[in-house]
Design a protein around this nucleic acid. Structure first.
Lengths: 169, 169
DNA sequence: TATTGTTATACTCTATAACTATA
DNA sequence: TATAGTTATAGAGTATAACAATA
């Protein structure tokens, strides 16, 4: 971090002094975490509406997308990649298996682990899923202004997520 | 939305065809909603660590900041501004009142409503709160690369949040 | 002894319906 | 009849501890 992190106001100062002796109160609207939360909720709400007909939640989408892209990964690997605790992954995977979309295969080398794969029906489902997702994602890209703005946004979020990366060095 | 939203892939195409007959699977890393969620979780986690000593949650922070900035607003007005259901706002406000930071005053004109104010102790608390927040927010701004990138990010998120706004028209 | 998947459990956040007191 | 605040409750999402099977 820069040298003045603790002493200086680098964010937008408040418009004026407010209540009794309180300096520089920011609008919630200018706060990074607040805006991120509101935007994420909006995008997820659009996602949920888009996928109501397929009865698919964001976490389930992400698991199916991961399995489709890299079949055979271990349960714990997919959970870790998505930031899901392995204990919470069990019910998620149970549901996908019960719907006949994916299955667990006992590992040959390590018989503790489960390799995850799509079923044939799961593959068909993922095709429909990706069509719905395309529409949803394009709607979000349109709101942003276009693919360039999407790339810009992803890049900024990557900076937040990768504290080690110092892209200008 | 643009004309091709439903038919064309405007987002980054997948690197290669993957599992049996599945075209163009995106990396989770390139998906707007996924990145937004991961970034929001990271920022909130930093917030929670920063405010552990003050024992303050993001929702409580936002309520205190709103009251400090605009004292006298009705409970329902603050709840609505923050996207909190008024039923869920009650316990939140109860906690702040029990800690002696804010209080509800019966409205003179409409005796159903409660006008929210900081207590003197609440005002002192908010001063400490803003100092902690400054450090937290500056850390996030540093990760982004600086105040310009912060403004850029806020602007992009505003585009997502304001579907009506067409800034280039 | 450590790891994978699992179960049980608890805590937070969020959403809905119904109640009360005022209007 | 409608509104502000409240209560009760249910559903997600998430976190931890402990267990069985396997390494």
């Amino acid at each position: 971090m820069t040298a003045d992190s603790n002493t200086t106001t680098r964010h937008a100062p408040a418009t004026e002094a407010t209540a009794a002796g309180l300096p520089a109160l920011p609008q919630m609207d200018s706060i990074i975490g607040y805006k991120l939360r509101r935007a994420q909720l909006l995008v997820f709400q659009d996602f949920l509406q888009s996928f109501a007909k397929l009865n698919l939640r964001p976490a389930e989408f992400s698991v199916l997308a991961m399995i489709a892209r890299t079949p055979g990964l271990k349960q714990s690997e997919i959970a870790a990649a998505l930031g899901i605790k392995r204990a919470n992954f069990v019910a998620l995977m149970d549901a996908l298996e019960k719907r006949g979309l994916a299955d667990r295969r006992k590992g040959d080398i390590d018989r503790r682990s489960h390799a995850l794969h799509l079923t044939p029906e799961g593959t068909r489902f993922v095709r429909k899923m990706m069509a719905v997702w395309n529409t949803h994602e394009n709607r979000m890209i349109d709101r942003l202004g276009g693919p360039a703005e999407r790339d810009l946004l992803i890049g900024l979020l990557d900076r937040l997520l990768a504290p080690d990366a110092t892209p200008d060095a």
